Simulated assay, not measured.
Amino acid sequence: MSTILSLNNISKRYGHVQALDGVSFDIPAGSVYGILGPNGSGKTTMLGIVTDVLKADAGSFTLMEQTPSAAQRRKIGTLLETPNFYHYLSAYKNLQIVANIKQTSEQDIPRVLELAGLVARQHSAFKTYSLGMKQRLAIAAAMLGDPEVLILDEPANGLDPVGIAEVRNLIRQLAQSGKTIIMASHLLDEVEKVCTHVAILRKGKLLGSGPVNAVLSRDNFIEIGGPDNQALSQLIKQHPAFVQVLPGQDGILQVTFRETIDPASLNSWCAQQGVWLSHLQMSRKSLETAFLELTNN
């Protein structure tokens, strides 16, 4: 898989604040790449540098295998701020203005309205739109000219659940058409549902990058319980594949093994040691737990 964007030791400082500190990672073509982190982690600064709104203090990046030129910029659609359109104009007229600014043909407007699901409301004033519709119009504006790459800063920020679902479905649709989508977000759930890859930032530092399942590792574990969980905890440490035991809710033990363990064979092993389990259940670490473990280290 080819690389669409490569960042090499990008650093940026605002006074005493180190917004980015030597950040490097690659974004593969055709991916939906989430830049994940809490507010103040450096996500927007990074996107600003990639789109030439900001200049890095150190480091470099290549986009589409070369240093971005004016021609390359036309292949990138961006949404870096809250949608800002003329409230009393229709979606169509607002897109006419955007097309003129971007120096692209107005003939592309029907296509992006169709993609955004706004054909039926294309002649309604922007002020009558819901938050989700406004955000979809902003993405439609970014899509004018049919760019190969979309860069979206917090596309679901401030939306209600319906609006979030609308934007999520649009991003999925665009991804299926072969676009590379780079999106910053602090919403862990949205990254899991939409993104194929992720880079996690905290206070300007890169904590990890790559496929979502690899970066946010969510190992299976087995919950067990018995008449004497303290004794059970000591016993389970003798299992040949034992890695870790942690206390769970209601005294239940959460046990991790270095390999997949069949619950029936574990139950049999415990019985052979003279311990009968009253609770035995396969489980999986939540995405939130995996994220907190990574960011709290």
Rank of each mutant, 00 (worst) to 15 (best):
S2R: 07
S2A: 07
S2I: 07
T3C: 11
T3W: 08
L5Q: 09
N9C: 13
H16K: 15
V17F: 11
V17H: 12
A19D: 08
L20W: 02
G22N: 10
F25K: 06
D26M: 03
G30C: 08
G30I: 04
S31K: 08
S31T: 11
S31Y: 07
I35M: 14
G37N: 04
P38M: 01
S41W: 06
T45K: 01
M46E: 02
D52Q: 15
K55P: 11
T62R: 05
Q66G: 12
T67N: 06
P68D: 02
R73D: 03
K75H: 13
L79W: 03
E81L: 06
T82A: 13
T104V: 15
S105I: 11
E106A: 14
D108G: 12
R111F: 14
G117C: 08
G117S: 09
R121H: 13
S124L: 15
F126H: 01
T128N: 12
T128D: 10
S130N: 02
G132S: 00
R136V: 00
I139D: 06
A140Q: 00
A140R: 00
M143K: 01
E148F: 05
L150G: 03
I151S: 11
D153K: 03
E154R: 04
G158L: 08
G158I: 06
G158Q: 03
L159G: 03
L159T: 07
D160N: 01
P161Y: 06
G163I: 02
G163N: 01
I164N: 02
E166V: 02
L174C: 00
A175F: 01
Q176P: 07
G178D: 09
A184H: 08
A184W: 03
L187N: 12
L188C: 07
L188V: 08
D189E: 15
E192R: 10
E192T: 14
I200V: 11
I200K: 07
K205F: 01
L206W: 05
L207W: 00
L207M: 05
G208Q: 10
P211H: 04
P211W: 04
V212G: 13
A214P: 14
S217K: 13
S217L: 13
F221G: 11
F221P: 05
I222N: 03
E223S: 15
I224V: 14
Q230C: 13
K237G: 09
Q238T: 15
V243W: 07
P247Q: 06
G248V: 08
G248Y: 04
G248C: 02
Q249A: 10
Q249V: 15
L253E: 04
Q254K: 12
T256Q: 13
R258L: 14
L266F: 10
L266V: 04
S268K: 15
Q272M: 13
G274E: 05
R284A: 15
T289P: 05
F291K: 08
L292T: 04
E293N: 15
E293Y: 10
L294C: 12
N297S: 14
N297E: 13
